[in-house]
Design a protein around this nucleic acid. Structure first.
Lengths: 117, 117
DNA sequence: CGGGATCCGTCTTGATACTG
DNA sequence: CAGTATCAAGACGGATCCCG
């Protein structure tokens, strides 16, 4: 199976290629879009776990984007996909240690947003 | 029946519409893209001031996007556009107080990027 | 029915050419 | 130098479809 191009649906939002050696640039390659950090907010602060939990948040992320971002966050290691039921398969997306390390960043984001936006 | 008039060259990167009352979501509407925070990094940490300064950074932002993001940051109040010469007009983009308040956010971003990406 | 995948039109991006 | 114009490529978003 080819690893790169099979993903399809709506393609990768950010390239895996490093633009530079700068940590800020690299972080932005991963989370520099409108949804990724919102999903992490939901996971970390609002206890969202299932696909529906995330989907029902007030910002209404489209399901295809949600599906893709979840996959990406799992691949990156910020979330872990855990089956909690098998007859109809059901999954939970649980923040890992790496995922939890985004909390300070989200707090700064919230502070900035609350103060200025 | 166009839903929105296409605005010249490259249109608005984020909508002005608030998606929610959440500070995180609002902050992401403003800075949730790959370039905006990079420009602020250049302005705040690398002393970039002129169009060329930003343009010559290693990540090579396309000039149309640079132009648009600078405009947006000026409108938002994070940068101030100041003429420093008038025969051929030349401008500097200088971080405002509001712009400087992004420093903690950028530091978190760098910490995260350095540690995990 | 829940958890996604697929289709498809519209908008954004990114490279580069061009202008004052 | 400081932007603007152009345009192909691709990301977004919404509706719908599919599978267990």
């Amino acid at each position: 199976m080819d690893k790169q191009k099979s993903i399809a649906s709506s393609a990768a939002p950010t390239k895996r290629v490093k633009r530079s050696e700068c940590g800020i640039a690299n972080a932005l390659d991963l989370i520099g879009d409108k949804w990724t950090l919102l999903i992490m907010r939901d996971a970390l602060f609002f206890q969202c776990r299932t696909f529906a939990d995330f989907s029902n948040q007030p910002e209404h992320i489209p399901t295809n984007l949600l599906s893709e971002r979840l996959k990406r966050l799992v691949t990156f290691g910020a979330l872990e996909k855990i089956a909690y039921q098998s007859k109809p398969e059901r999954f939970q997306y649980v923040p890992t240690k790496l995922g939890n390390s985004m909390k300070p960043l989200l707090k700064e984001l919230r502070a900035f947003g609350d103060a200025h936006v």
